[in-house]
Every structure is written in C-alpha cells, then in structure tokens.
Write a protein that binds this DNA or RNA. Structure first.
Lengths: 345, 345
DNA sequence: GACATTTCTGGTAACGTTCCCGAGAACGAT
DNA sequence: ATCGTTCTCGGGAACGTTACCAGAAATGTC
C-alpha cells in the first residue's frame, strides 16, 4: 500500500523506468518475459499509476467537472446520479461543485476546475448568472462543455434540455381542463432560458383555450427560489389580488414547496380553493398533502445523455460540424392537488 | 488566460524560476524592486499556480475527500453544505463521492481519493460495510480521517455523531405519552453503530414506561433503506401481525417514506390507527400528509464540526493524545403524525 | 586594505510518468 | 564478412513548482 512507483519497480527488477513504463502499457517492443516479470511484480506490490503525475504530464485528468446550483434538490441529485453512472463506466471521475445560485461562486468553481485540469465541464447555470464570458473563454480554448437544463442561449455547444414549453403547456392545459380559469405562474428570474420557455408554454395554453394572458398573474422570484421569504411574499401578493387565482403553476422545486407552505399557513384548501401543479422531482410528491400534481423532468436520462455527449467531445477533439441541443420530454403526473372542481375526468 | 507559468514570467523578466518563485511567495531574501516587478507582471498576466504541480511535489492537494452513501438525501446534502462552508473558508476544496451503500464502491472511492492525494477524508460508512481495513490502513499511514454519523466502533479517530440513544428515547417516549403501547421500530442493518444506539434508546424508553420490549416489533432492513421493496415488505409484515402496532418509529429517511407510502396504499389513517415518527431531515416534513413528527439531526453543524476537526488534524500532524467523539443532540419536531389519541397534551 | 557578513540571485534536483532518440545484440541476406 | 533489420532496452527531457546549495556583489568591521 506504500504507493510504489515505476522507479521502485525499475530498481527492484534492475530495469530502466522506460522499460517498466512500456511493459506496464503492454508495449509491443518489450520482451514477453520482461513484460511478465514487470506485470507480476507490479501486481504483487499493488502498483497504481499516480494520477497527479499523469495529469501534470498530459494536462488532463480523466475527470469531469460538474457545476450545478445546489445538490439539496432532487432534480440535481438525480442528475448527478445519471452523470456518475455513465462517467464511471467510461473511466471518468466526477467532481461536483455547487454555485449556490451565486455568480461569483460559479466563476470561482469554474476556474478551480480548469486549474485542476478537468477534461470537460457539465454545467447548469446559476440563476444569477448573466455574464457568460468565463464559459465563452473556455470554449474558445477548446475546453469541452455541455450545458444541462439551464442553458445559455448564445453559446454554441451541446445542450441537454427539457421541452419546457411542452411541459408547461401540458400543466397549464391540465389546470384549464379541470376547471380553472385564473391561473397564476410562479417562476424564476426572467432572463433564464427555462423561465422564458415555461412562460411561453403557459401563455400559449391559456390563449389556445380562450383565456387572456394576464401579466399580473406572473411572479418572478429573482433568487431562483433560494430565498424563501421572497417566494412567500410572491404567493402572498397573488392571494391579495382583487381576483386571486384559482390555480398556481410553479416553475421549480423550491417555488413549489414555498407555495404549498403559504397555502397551508393560510388554511387555503387544495385543490378546492386553489389548485397547485409544479415542476418538481421530489420522490415524495404522493406523500404530500394533498398529493402533488407534478411536472417531472427526466433528470437521470438528462445526466446520461449530457455525459455521453461530453465524453464524446473529450475523446474526439475534432470539432463537430454542428452542436446538438437535445430536448427531452417532461411527464405530467396527475395527483390530487389539481383534482377537478366539477365532477368530470 | 493561457495558463501562464513561472517559467514564462522568468523568461519575460529575464530572471530565474527560483527568483520568481520566491518573489511570488514574498520571500525575505528577494529585493523589493524585483519582488514588485514580478508581482505586478504576475498580476497583469493573471498568473495562477498550477495545483497539479504542487500536488505532485508536495503530495498534498489542499482538498478533502468526502465519502457518503448518497447525496439524494437531505441529511447528507445538508451535511455537505456544512462541510463546504468551513472547507471553503479554510482554503480547502471538497471532493464528493457516493458509495451508494455499496462496500465495493466505498473502497474504490477511497483508493481513488488517496491516489488523488486528498489531505484528509470525511466518511459516513456505507450500510453494507463491515470490513474496515481500507480505512485502518490509511490511518496507519497517517491519513487524517474523521467519521460522521455512521461511525465504526473499533477505529480510533475523531468522530462526529448524534446522540442516537437520546433521539430515539425521546421519540419513543413521545409515542408512549400520546397513548401508544404497541410501538414498532423499522431500522437499518443491525451491525451499524446508529442502529444499535437507536434500538437501545427505543428499548430503554419502553422499559422505563413499563412496556415490555418485543423483538417481533423490530424490523431490520438490510439494504439500509435503498431497496424500497424490502422496506415495504417489512411494513407489510408489521401490519399482518396478530397484534399490529399502533405506532411505527422509523430510523432513516428512506425508511420513513417507504412506511408512509405503504400506510397510504392500505388506507390506514395516520395518526388515528397508526402513529408515525421518523428520523428525517427533509425540508418538507410539514407538507406531508399528515405533517410528520420528526427526529431531526443537526446535519449542518455536524458538517461544520467534522470539517474543523479534520482540518485541525491535517494542519497539526502531531498526533493528538486523544481523539474526540462529539455527540450532538437531535431535536424532536412534533407534528400531526403523532397527535394524541385521547385528548390530552 | 584584508576579511567576514549580508543581500540577492541562479542552477539543479526532485515529485512520477511517458515519449523521443539512440544504441547494442542477434539475425538473415547478400 | 558486411550490411540492413528487427528486437529489446536505456538515457534524457518534459510537465510546473519549490528547496537546497552555491556564488557574486555589496556592505560592514577591525
């Protein structure tokens, strides 16, 4: 276990480090007997190549960096599981960093990961990131990056997203079909790609069903849901309107829980007074009170696909002629929080 | 941004690398003007020392490895946040690995982290780990390790745990005081330290209140809650008993949700028919149906303290005369899932 | 003015690995 | 016997950094 090196093997076997190195890599130009000797000794002494030395030499590390807003969120932890399973099989290690929705920490993490010579980056943007130069410069320099879920519009690289428009349209339409007409939308900062797409789906569903879009029913939470007080204020404002909504459609996990929390405090009955449907990947949506109708994102699969694309980029550095943006479908799981007011299905 | 090195600076300023290196570290033996020259040029060119080279040279990395069962669990993700906040302030980076409750992956992660030259390890044992030689050998070699929550009995190093006996006693006593007499306990594999301690607290509370301990009310889930089917079978067995319990005390997050899930499926009313209290750190316990009485662990603080101890170990390699085992208190948050049967408080 | 001391800087090895270059031995071909 | 191949191996440099050793110049001391 004493971290034996190639030099130690060379000394012990009275060979040169070059020979040992080549024997270890099974080079054709090494005598079979020598090879066998080295291999057996290495095995016996439990030789493991020093990844640091390799990184220094080759400027790469067989590892990929992941930068996400937070891990204490089921969507992201499932995403990580998807990433890890593929990376693991392909011989890559995964280094995880949280931006905590902070631009500064996103930049700091990016720089560190780069100095640590990760071979590629998987990133989901912080909700406070508007300046993207740190990623643009990296792409210029040839660092492979794949964006997931929260992706930048103006950067050309692979992206894995969900069809937010569709998911949002479906959720809104479901609310309408179950009898709601005054549907509010609680969402993230407007400059995030996902915010706009979800808003568009929401708006389109309303219009397709003859309900005029009303901007005052849309609340943006600028801290991306990280600041509970802000979320709760937004819900409160909705309730205080002259015509309070009869349904709330929330665009993220934390927004959803904040919303439920306020409605409970106010003893507002769900779904009788206000129906709720939200984007969320929590595993216990059906244990909530009431069980929550949810737009679920295929987080695991998103992790898989993003990692596959990234590793392909890493291992085939010739620039692909065109970058993909894969859009996966969300699924709407209908539960009691949106049960019909009138008796129909 | 093109990763400038000390050599580049030396060449540009017509100095030697030694001089530049020393100027950068503000060595006393370098002329102030030279120092200023170097510092300014380094700043201008955005010089950043290459951490890989430093790691190779010094066999350390200013980073600490974290090995936990899974991140998709609020206790552990809060723990990580606690770890990160301290580590970040002390200039350390955090590398997270999941064992997924698998012994093999725990060992593999450990080895990798060691080869990556992390300066220390923070570990919460996989529920399937019984052989601890991989950690023992490391400690022998002087690697600082601090265990958290799921700790080994026979290894002598710093440990951060919660007072499982107390938490368990408190929860059980609460069930008794609210009128339950047939209290079941759903728990993790018996060889984990936390399992035994929680069982002891449960048993002691029963005995102190004149309720005989009945082994058939205790169910061990050998996969640590990772296998939902196993958990659900266990609950089912409890329900099928000639004298089914009127309360279930669950020892972990996943066990708790599995339990609630089965009770819901069977349309068993909580708390009227069966009360439920569980160890959990989920942020949405009060949004559950019914709101869940919970034993909450001070995950963030555990992360803080463990990291402080670890960094102290790293930076003061002289062996401490005695290792600490800090035991933090859990808190019992009472909600409706254990509301009294009779009207009293 | 001779010598000791301080101040400043350069060269080099080392961390572990791989790759390029070269070179000796054995071999067959001419 | 000489030459070109093939097989097998060793030497050295390089990745970026710091520490040790040394040495030149400047200053101080008597």
């Amino acid at each position: 276990m004493e971290t034996i090196t190639i030099k130690d093997i060379a000394r012990a076997l009275n060979l040169s480090t070059s020979t040992v190195s080549r024997a270890l890599r099974n080079s054709y130009e090494i005598n079979n007997e020598t090879k066998k000797l080295v291999l057996e000794y290495a095995e016996k002494m439990n030789y493991r190549p020093n990844p640091i030395a390799l990184s220094l030499r080759d400027s790469k590390s067989k590892s990929i960096g992941v930068i996400i807003p937070e891990i204490a969120n089921n969507f992201f932890s499932q995403l990580i599981n998807g990433i890890e399973s593929i990376a693991y099989n392909m011989g890559y290690h995964v280094v995880i960093f949280q931006s905590h929705e902070s631009y500064e920490r996103e930049v700091a993490n990016t720089n560190y990961l780069v100095s640590r010579k990760v071979d590629g980056l998987l990133v989901s943007l912080s909700s406070l990131t508007t300046d993207l130069t740190h990623f643009e410069e990296l792409l210029e320099k040839g660092m492979p990056i794949v964006f997931i879920d929260r992706v930048p519009k103006n950067i050309d690289t692979h992206k894995i997203v969900v069809d937010n428009f569709f998911g949002s349209y479906q959720a809104t339409e479901h609310l309408i079909k179950t009898g709601r007409k005054k549907i509010a939308h609680l969402t993230s900062p407007f400059y995030l790609s996902i915010t706009m797409e979800r808003l568009d789906g929401y708006r389109q569903a309303l219009e397709d069903n003859g309900i005029p879009f009303d901007e005052s029913y849309v609340k943006y939470c600028h801290h991306g849901g990280m600041m509970t007080s802000e979320n709760e204020t937004a819900v409160q404002e909705l309730l205080d309107m002259p015509e309070p909504p009869d349904a709330i459609f929330t665009a993220s996990d934390r927004l959803t829980t904040s919303c439920l929390s306020v409605l409970h405090q106010k003893h507002i009955r769900i779904p009788e007074e206000i129906a709720v449907v939200g984007f969320t990947n929590t595993g216990i949506a059906d244990l909530l009170n009431p069980p929550l109708t949810a737009v679920v994102q295929p987080a695991l699969d998103m992790g898989h696909q993003a990692t596959e694309l990234l590793i392909r980029l890493i291992e085939h550095p010739k620039k692909p002629t065109v970058f993909e943006t894969r859009s996966l479908k969300t699924s709407l799981i209908i539960r009691e929080s949106t049960a019909s007011k009138t008796v129909d299905v």
